[in-house]
Each structure stands twice: as C-alpha cells, then as structure tokens.
Design a protein around this nucleic acid. Structure first.
Length: 868
RNA sequence: GGGCGGUUAGCUCAAUUGGUUAGAGCGUCGGUCUCACAUACCGAAGGUUAGAGGUUCAAUUCCUCUACCGCCCACCA
C-alpha cells in the first residue's frame, strides 16, 4: 500500500469502520466470562442531526469503551434514539405550517404516520453520524424509546406505579403552552425578563375605602375570587374579612389573609385568581375559594368572562384597561420588568391553567434517590453537580405525566362510558371489567417524553423480562451527559431504577462541558448555531475532531468550538502518520524483538519517558481528566518522541541497531494502544499496515516497560539543554551551523575562548561551557545547512565529557538548599507547640513536604554519584 | 433572592491539588524546501495570574471583600 505524504482520513475511516462492523468488534457476548463494562448511550432526539455537543459526549464514551476493551473487559455500549415527543411535534408542525396546516387538520393517525417517517429518516442519519465518529456501539442491540421493548417497559412502569398508588389524576395549575397545545413541566418553562407594566387597580367597597391591588395580568381579574393581604400587614388589618367589589364584574369578593403574600411588593394587596396562577391556586385552596376558569386552552376568554368572552388574552387586556380607566379604577401604571414564563421550545408565553392531569407522587420515591447520591453509591463527576441534583431532589414536586400530544406512549388508562369505571391495564381491555360494557375508550393523552427516558438504562436491556442482558449488564457503569438534563433525565433514571429494579442505574455520572459557538452562544439546532460533526469529519477527519474535542474537555462549565480549532487534531494525525511513514520500512518487516540490551542512553531515556506517559494517561483517564489525557499523548509523541528520540535515532535506525529497533518497536506499538481510544481510525490503520496484528482491538492495554535504572538517562536532559543553547546562539547571532560546529570541534579552542569569541550571550554560553574537551571531528556526519535535531546526534558522546565540576557544584548547591529546608520542616514537626496549635491538615501537609523533599534529595545525591 | 462556575500571554485554554524560571496551541517576529512530515523544522518576543486585604518560609492555587462575565434554581402577583 502506498504511504501518502499527507494522511487522508476519508480514505481510511469508512474502510476501518466497516472492518470493525464485519468482525463484530462492537458486540458484547452474554457467554463471556470477562468483567463487564456497560454504558447506555444518552439516546439522541430524533428531531434532527447530532451537533458538536453530541460529538463530544459520544467521543468521551467511546474513549472509555475502547480503553476498557483494551483492558480486557467485555464492553457493551447500547445505542438508541429517543422519540422526543414534544420536540418532534414541534419539528413536524413547523413543516406543516409551511403547508398551511396544523396537526389538527391532519388528525392523530396521519400525524403519527408522518412522525414515524420522520423517525426513520433521522434515526438513520444519527446512526451514520455515530459511525462516522467511530463509536463502537453494539448495533445489534439498537433501541428506540417507542419500539416494542421500550414501550412494554413504559406500560409496565405506569401500571406498577399506579398499583402502588403513586399515580393519581387531579385538577392542578399546570403550565399550558398555547402553541404546543399541551401541558408542560416546570422544567420546560423558562423565564424571560420582559419589559411590561404593573397596573394598580382599585377594588372598591360598598361603603368605605376599598383596596388597591397591583397586577401584571389585569385580564385575569375576571376570574378573581378574593383579595389577599399579609396577616400582619397593619395597613389592612381593619378590613380583613370585609368584601370588595370586583371591578367590571360587579361581584363581591372577600379580603382574606395569607402568609404567602409579600407585604413589600406593589401595594401589599394581591388579587387572587385561583384558576390562573399557581400561588393563587394554593391560597385559594387554603381558603376554600372557588376557581373560575376565565381563559381557555386557546387563550380566549371563556363564557365566565362576561362581555369579554371570545377575546384573546391580549385583546382582553387592552379592553379591560380601557374600561377600568373609564370607570376611574385604574389608579396608575408603572414600568416593570416582568419575569415572563415562556415555553422553552417555542417561547410562547405560557398560560397557567387549572386542568385535569395525571401526576406521579414524588416524595416517597425521591428519598432513596437522594440517599444513593449522598452515600456516594452514585458519584457525580465533577463533584459539584451532585449538589445541584440533591437540591432538586430535596424540593421535588409531583411530576405531571400527561401531555395533550399524539407522538408518544399513550397513557394506558381506559374509561368505561357506561359505568365510568377507570381501568389501568397492561393489555388493552376489550370490555369493562365491572359492567362488561363495550363502550371503552383510552385516555387521549400521552406520557411526558421523559417517562420513557427515565427507564432507558434498564428498558434497553429488556426489563421487565428476566433477560440475560439484565442479569449480566445491569447496573451499567457510566452515564455521560450534559448538565441541562440532570433533573429532566438523570434524576428520573435514578429514582425509576431504584423503584423498579431496586438497583442504581449506574455508579458514575459524568457531566461534560457545554459546547458553545465561537461567539459564546449555546449550540442549538433550532437557532442554527449547531455544527454537524459530519461536516467537520468530511473536512478534517473523525480522529481530528475527536482529538480536538477531547483536548478541550477540561471539566469546566463550557468551552467554545469553531471549525478552525480542529486543525490541531488534523495536524497531529498527520504528524503521527508521517512518523509511521518513517518507521514503516524499519518496523513492518521485522518481528518485534523479544528483549534487548539497551546500548544507548537515548533508548533508556525514551522508555522511561514512555513509562511516565503511561502513568499520566492512566491517572488522567481514571479521573476522567480527558484534556490531560489528550495533552500528554500529544506532548509525548510530538515533542519527545519525534523531536528528540527519532531525530537522535535516525542513524541507528538506518544501521538497524538492535537496541534501537527493539526500543522503537516497543514504544511505537504501545503508544498506538494508548492513543487508540482517542484516535481509533488512524491507530487501527497503522496497526494493520505494519502487520502488527489483525486489529489493535485484539490487543491489551500496555503495562510499564521494565527498565533497569541507569545513570545515563538523567544526562539526556543536560544534552538537550546543550543543543538548545547551541541553536539559540546560532539563531541569535546568525552564525551558520557550519561555522559554529567548526568552532566547537576545534581542539585549540577552550570553552573560555569560545566565550570570549561569542560575547554578549553569556547565558547560553554557560551551557556551552559544559563542553570541556572536543575531539569529535572524525565522528560527526557530513554537515548540511540543516540544524535539525538529527544533526546534533553526534553530540551524544559529549555526555561523557560534560564539565563534571560545574555540574557537581550546581547539584551540591541544590542539595544544600534542600537540606536547609528539610531541617526547617523537621524542626517544625518536632515542635510540640506547633503540632498542638496547627490543624491536622497543616501537619499532614508538612509531612508530605518532608517526604517529597527527602525523595528529591535522594535523587540529587544519586545524580551526583554519577558525576564522580 | 439563593446556588455554582469563571476572570492567567494578542486569542482559546492548561497548571499534577500550596513548591524550581506560570505552560501549550493558534497568532506575531526572525531563520529554513532538511533524505517522515511546510498540516513541517529551528529560534525569539509576549504575564504585576481582574483588584484590595489576609494566612504561610512559599499563593495562580487557601480565606475575606470588591468588580465584571456566564450558567442553574426560585410562587414577588
């Protein structure tokens, strides 16, 4: 196969992914005896394609999956998609709007047919995106929240909750979105600060002063059934219990008290509209007030609204203000920044409505969900998110389950029209179980989309059946997701799992950064700032995107992404590719040597550097520090392996020196394994080209390479310093390398003479002064105009002629300082006063420093001994 | 109103949990077609770590306050 000068991911990636698929590398066996590692994918909504945020999340999961696979685990990553009830509705309705239709013009059945079409289209595209990204999902276990398996779980779950008395139907104030035409949960409401007015309206009394209230929604006045004041508000004490006349409606309503009223706001007196405000509803309920619904689901005034009937809420407001002014009851208007509640999807102002809905009682099931996190059975990473979760669980309210939509799981409740019996059933009943009547109809509503998502980790494994998957792969290990669905989804999975399976759904929740656009906006498809990963992959390659995203993932709140940033990953992939080009003729022909005596300090040095890398990588991944993982791989390969090791080793590579071949083999192969989780395509391609094996996925994660400690290793860095010094001088003084080298190899020139010759660069020259004796002319290769590292390779023997005295003095000085410091620490630790007064952590810190310094001292003494 | 995160080089971000001279990529400046790579190589410049106090032998790191920026939660009508 050709080895092109520039890495071409497009040519490689499709082929490699097909190879993995054909060989079923993604598949988890139920007969395997290995330890298991399981992730269920956060199922993407089928509303559209994945954006960069998804690419990040799935890259991170794939990294962990592949690492665990290399570590010898039986890994299972269950893929799937979410029907995303309301979001999908919105998308389809947007399309319909273009055709001039609403979903009601189509009717339920035709709308659902269209939704399934939509689902098939986008599910396919999403899967193609995941594959393009390289995700090693078990495609034989692909699920959809509305497929047969998941639907069954949903129905079972609803019935079990109901049978335990946790699901009830009641009138409550719910958030009604007039555009989506459904109830939505509190979490789907967002408050927008909107410029508005505060209207001050006088509610007169038959005899006496009356009372002035302040309101932001004068149109709800039509449904007022009381005026409330704070029980301790001196201003109103006298008139509590009196009646006032509701303006425009001429209805007498009482003045009541409630501790929920804020004395400071407005006039301290508040109009109470129990049917259109959650707080008013609560106050109304406590005082047995009637609730009069004056605004309907289309936001029009109902027949209860007298002459205003039929107007929209906006029109009614205008009319009512006009009429109040006419009657002299509108005292004043003030400008006011209104926290307006809107639908999170369409930004339509929501209408709080009194409505009959299904609810899930939360108090009881929230308790264990709180405990598992408190006790650390489920761990949030980064840790801070657990407080967000706990705070929500602490104050959780009952969950409104029903939605007045079509696309989703229909509520399994059946009503008998003959005897009004209510049946909740696992299978559709054909007749009433009480009166055997045949007039049965199913509840029209569907379940909140998160109801099915809440069952995802176990529903995907076949629950409620006792499947082998359920026995083997549950609980799962990790959930990786973004912060905005901690309540909507993560919390609900946890309490659902505990309730139904008595197990936690996963033991770790990783919350990744939010991906922002270049200008700092949130990635969002609907706002058109989402970037399709396929586009980036097309231009830069999957590995490049994966590497770049991982490198940006630093456990911070968010990071900004734009296309050009991916050049980082692309260039890195190309660098690796080219190193492979260089190594291919050397390594692909020869089987890996068993072991070899290392004859060069450089070989020992790179192995010790690799061991450092390995421990960094393990540490980073174990702590979900993805950025550190990516950075250390980058740093090692580019600036340690390529810049120094390969340059130093070129000659010995050409001469096929056994020590170097052995080292190259062991370093390069093991490096590819460490890199594989993050850049799977490139590493697999190289692995196969080098004929290292059938697939890198058959390999095992590297262990530390055994290395006998040698005195020469520590000297490599001194040599690097020297070379850097020489380069700096050359570059700064613009001396050609030829001249400089001539100077250096001239035996008649002492270091001192050199210093004299090259005045003004003392700092660098001091480095040069380490060269005491120069007699290397015959050893050096022919000079070119180049001064890349390889040209300095012949300096290696200089290791033996370093100015020993100078180096010794430097180390001795450092040792002396260290000893002084250590003595101080020891004195402090002996000081009983100090120990008594100091906090435990201070003492521990001192102990730590002592150990640290002692070790450093040992190392320095060791170095010193080499110099003798 | 409450909670959380942030403020470090021109830009985007790091800093092994308090320890040598605060790093990287991009950008800038200077030098290179060099037999893996110009998607490259070599060198350089660039920082009072938002500000003010405090603790410490030592602070980007811990504490307090201030100023901005961002996110989340909340029944001020």
């Amino acid at each position: 196969m050709e080895f092109a000068k520039v890495y071409n991911p497009k040519e490689v990636e499709k082929r490699i992914y097909s190879f993995w698929e054909e060989n079923r590398y993604y598949h988890a066996s139920i007969t395997s005896k290995k330890k298991r590692f399981v992730i269920s994918i956060p199922p993407p909504n089928i509303t559209g394609s994945l954006h960069i945020g998804h690419a990040l999340n799935n890259t991170l999961q794939d990294i962990l999956i592949r690492k665990k696979k290399l570590e010898g685990f039986e890994v299972l990553w269950i893929p799937g998609t979410d029907h995303a009830s309301i979001a999908t509705h919105n998308q389809i309705e947007k399309e319909l709007k273009k055709e001039g239709k609403t979903r009601f013009d189509l009717g339920r059945e035709k709308f659902l047919a269209r939704a399934w079409e939509w689902k098939n289209k986008y599910e396919g595209y999403i899967i193609s995106q995941l594959k393009a990204l390289g995700c090693l999902c078990d495609w034989e276990r692909l699920r959809f929240t509305m497929d047969e398996v998941c639907s069954r779980a949903v129905r079972e779950a609803f019935c079990r909750y109901y049978e335990k008395g946790l699901i009830y139907r009641d009138y409550r104030i719910i958030n009604w979105c007039p555009r989506c035409k459904t109830a939505i949960s509190d979490l789907e409401v967002k408050t927008l600060i909107t410029p508005s007015k505060l209207w001050f309206i006088k509610y007169p009394r038959r005899d006496g002063e009356g009372v002035m209230i302040a309101t932001t929604r004068p149109e709800t006045l039509l449904g007022d059934t009381a005026v409330a004041v704070h029980p301790e508000d001196e201003r109103y004490k006298k008139i509590i219990g009196e009646k006032v006349i509701l303006p425009l409606m001429n209805r007498e309503i009482p003045i009541i008290t409630s501790p929920l009223v804020d004395k400071e706001f407005g006039t301290g007196a508040v109009k109470i509209t129990p049917a259109h405000d959650a707080l008013d509803f609560e106050i109304g309920r406590a005082n047995n007030l009637p609730a009069i619904k004056v605004i309907d689901e289309d936001t029009r005034i109902t027949s209860e609204g007298g002459k205003y009937q039929g107007l929209t809420r906006e029109e009614a407001r205008v009319e009512i203000i006009k009429d109040l002014t006419k009657e002299g009851l509108l005292i004043k208007e003030e400008d006011y920044s209104l926290p307006l509640k809107t639908c999170v999807r369409c930004e339509t102002p929501i209408e709080p409505l009194l409505s009959l809905q299904w609810f899930l009682k939360m108090a009881e099931i929230a308790q264990p969900a709180k405990e598992v996190v408190e006790k650390g059975e489920i761990r949030f990473i980064p840790d801070r998110w657990k407080y967000v979760y706990l705070d929500w669980m602490e104050n959780v309210k009952d969950w409104c389950l029903s939605r007045q939509l079509w696309w989703g799981h229909r509520i399994p409740v059946f009503y008998c029209d003959d005897c009004q019996e209510i049946m909740v059933s696992r299978i559709d009943p054909s007749e009433c179980k009480r009166c055997q009547g045949k007039n049965i109809r199913q509840d029209e509503d569907i379940l909140d989309t998160w109801f099915s998502s809440a069952l995802w980790p176990f529903a995907t494994l076949g629950w409620p059946e006792d499947t082998p998957e359920m026995a083997l792969f549950y609980p799962t290990d990790l959930l990786s997701t973004d912060p905005d669905i901690i309540f909507l989804w993560v919390a609900r999975m946890i309490f659902s799992s505990l309730f139904f399976t008595k197990k936690i759904p996963f033991h770790t929740v990783y919350i990744h950064s939010t991906v922002l656009s270049q200008s700092g906006e949130r990635m969002s498809r609907s706002r058109g700032v989402g970037v399709d990963p396929n586009l980036i992959i097309e231009r830069y390659g999957s590995d490049a995107l994966r590497f770049t995203l991982t490198n940006l993932e630093t456990q911070s709140q968010s990071f900004r992404f734009w296309e050009e940033r991916v050049t980082l990953g692309r260039n890195f992939a190309n660098k690796i590719w080219n190193a492979a080009r260089l190594l291919h003729p050397v390594l692909s022909q020869i089987p890996q040597p068993e072991s070899e005596d290392l004859t060069s300090p450089i070989d020992e040095w790179i192995i010790s550097e690799f061991n450092k890398l390995l421990s960094d990588v393990n540490h980073s991944l174990n702590n979900y520090n993805f950025s550190a993982y990516a950075t250390s791989l980058y740093e090692f390969f580019w600036h340690t392996f390529c810049d120094w090791y390969l340059e130093f080793s070129k000659r010995r590579m050409r001469e096929k020196e056994p020590s170097t071949l052995y080292t190259l083999h062991i370093i390069f192969r093991n490096y590819l394994k460490l890199l594989h989780p993050i850049m799977p395509f490139l590493t697999e391609e190289i692995w196969q080209r080098f004929r290292f094996g059938k697939s890198i996925l058959d390999e095992r994660w590297p262990e530390k390479i055994p290395l006998l400690p040698s005195e020469k290793v520590g000297m490599v860095s001194i040599m690097q310093e020297m070379i850097k010094g020489i380069r700096t001088i050359r570059s700064e003084l613009l001396i050609s390398p030829k001249v400089l080298l001539t100077l250096l190899i001239n035996p008649s020139l002492t270091p001192q003479a050199l210093i004299d010759f090259l005045k003004g660069n003392m700092e660098h020259l001091q480095t040069l002064a380490k060269v005491k004796e120069i007699g290397l002319a015959e050893k050096r290769p022919p000079l070119s105009s180049s001064y890349s590292t390889s040209q300095f390779e012949f300096y290696l023997p200089l290791l033996g002629v370093i100015d020993v005295n100078k180096e010794r003095m430097r180390i001795e000085k450092e040792i002396y300082e260290l000893q002084q410091e250590l003595a101080k620490i020891e004195e402090r630790l002996r000081d009983e006063e100090f120990i008594k007064k100091a906090k435990e952590e201070v003492r521990v810190r001192e102990e730590k420093r002592k150990i640290e310094f002692t070790e450093k001292l040992k190392r320095l003494n060791n170095n010193l001994s080499y110099l003798v």
